[in-house]
Amino acid sequence: MSTTILFTVISLSAIGSIAAIILYFVAQKFKVYEDPRIDQVEEILPAANCGGCGYPGCRGFAEAMVKADDLSPFYCPVGGNETMTQAAEILGKAVEAKDPLVAVIRCSGSPEHRKRVNTYDGASTCVIVSGLYSGETGCQYGCHGLGDCVDVCDFEAIYMDEETGLPVVIDDNCTACGACVKECPNDIIELRKKNKKDRKIFVSCVNIDKGGIAKKACEVACIGCKACVKVCAYDAITVENFLAYIDPNLCKLCRKCVDVCPTNSILEINFPPRKVKVEATETVETKKVETPVGPTGENEKKENDNNIINQEG
C-alpha cells in the first residue's frame, strides 16, 4: 500500500517538475519585449477599464500613449487632468488640461408631460424599442425609459427615476466616460462642461419636429420658438430643426433663457433658488433641480421645495 502511495507521489512530482521546466523555456522563448513604461503608466490609470478613453481597457490606453508622439488626442475621463499630468510626466511629454465634463439627460418627458399612447411589450431595452417603432409616446425622439444607459454605466452614476421614468445622473459619480452617450439609441445623453459648483443650463429636449407637433406629443418639448435665442446676450443659443441648443462654451450661465422658454424646456441645475416675482409665480413653473445624490433623492427635493416656499414668503 505505502509503496503505491510513494510511487504516486514521486511520479506526480516528476511530471510536475518537467512540466514546469518546459513551461519556463516556452515562456522564455515567446517573451516579447515590452516597454516598461507601459506598466508604469498603467499603474497610475484608474483601472476602471471602462473604455471611456476609446481604447479597450486601461492597458490598451497605456500602450497607445507610450507609442504616441503627441498626447493631445488622449484623455482619460475617469482619472481626469491629474492622471493625465502624471502620465505625461512618466512619458516626458506635455498635456493640456481639459474641462471636466458630466453627462446630462436631454429629455424631460415624464408621463405627466408626455402621454403614453400605447404599451410596449417586447424585450426591455431602449435599443430594441427604437429599432421597432417610435416608442410609447407621440415623441419618437425622447427617452424610451428602459434604462440601457443605466445598465452600461460602470460607475453607478445613473439610475431610473421611477416617477418620471427618466434616467437621472448622479454628478458626483459620473466620470464622463461616455459609455451611456454611446449606448443611448436616441442620443439623448450629452457630455457637458461641469461648470463651477456643477452648474448647468441646457435644453432638455431632442425633439426635432415642428413646434406644434412637438408640443402635442410632449408639454415640455422645445418648439423652436427662438425666444431664448433672442434673449441670450452671448449668442450661445442656436435653433436648428426646431430645436434649440445651448453651446456650453459660450453660455455664461445667466439664466435669462430659462425664464423665457414657453414650454420650460431649458433646465437650470444646481443654482441657488432665486427671487421669484410674485405675479410671475402662477405662470412660471419652477425648474430648480438639485443634483441628486442617490436613488433616494426625495429629501433633497423636499428641501428644495421648502426653499422656494421660503423665498416666496
Binding site: 417586447g122 424585450a123 431595452t125 435599443v127 430594441i128 429599432g131
Partner: peptide, 12 residues
C-alpha cells in the same frame, strides 16, 4: 424569452 428581439438586434 424574447429570443428574436435580441437576435434581430444582434443581426443589425
Amino acid at each position: 424569452l424574447p429570443l428574436l428581439d435580441y437576435i434581430r438586434l444582434g443581426k443589425s
